[in-house]
Amino acid sequence: MKTSSYTAIAYLFLAPALILMGVFTFWPVGYNAYLAFNDYSIADATATWNNFAHFKYLYGEELFHDALKNSLLFLLVVPVIQVAALLVAKLVNNKLPGMTFFRAAFYIPVITAISIAGIVWLNVYKYDGILTWFLQSLGLIEEQINWLGEPEIAIYMVMVFTFWKGIGYYMVLYLAGLQSIPTEVEEAAVLDGANAWQRFWKITVPMVKPTILLCTLLSTIAALKAFQEVVVLTRGQADTYTALYYVYAQAFTNFNFGRAAAAGLVVTFFCVLLAIVQFRFFGEKK
């Protein structure tokens, strides 16, 4: 009797969460898969089976291939942001004055809305923007460069923005990892005459290895899913389509929900694959 009364209460408490997740999280998985195999008409909300037409189209379309390529290229951010975040975390992880200020300064881009931060960077990257002026005054370039308009460099400029926006987030994760290293270990190494470089590679890196793995996987998934920075900075111009930007643009500029869903399914497949790897590594530890 006791258990059954708990069962009713438990499901009553869980009901709001389960209903909302059912409608807005689980249903979309199935519905997205369904849309991917249909032509969807927004006007009269009807879907018609189209015999894999979307997938055939995606298989042959250059824009989608370029988008996938750019998403893979975006993985370049991962090692750079991880090494930099670990170094920065190491620098702010001590009892010297001013560390709270520096941590806060590095975290500000993380808590700024991507759209608002993006507007400033649009002005930094303009052909007569502050980046051009900065490099000109150093004598490194002569021409004015439209940083987000040149297909060869635009995607890398978007990556720099991603790096700027995200480094504080990973810094905090590394900080948590660093704080679990007992100070005695480092002190002993100092006594043994190890220099900062040796201490970093021989002590810090091995001891935060679990955090490094976690952050690498998180940022790998984030890099494959990158698209908000493209929405804000380039709207896909100058060869900057990423996989999810393709989904977004197909859905809300082209209004082809079916094709967007099919492309989304391809992205989901890769993300779930990576997430499974992540859970294999960290499942027990959570």
């Binding site: 997740m21 807005f24 999280t25 689980f26 249903w27 979309p28 998985v29 519905y31 997205n32 849309l35 998934i221 899913k225 698209f227 999810l244 989904v247 977004y248 859905a251 929900f257 967007a260 869903a261 989304g264 399914l265 992205v267 989901t268 993300c271 779930v272 997430a275 499974i276 859970f279």
Partner: peptide, 12 residues
């Protein structure tokens, strides 16, 4: 649900 990219839920 943490494994699913939430962006894919936008259209549905």
């Amino acid at each position: 649900t943490m494994m699913l990219p939430s962006e894919v839920a936008i259209i549905p």
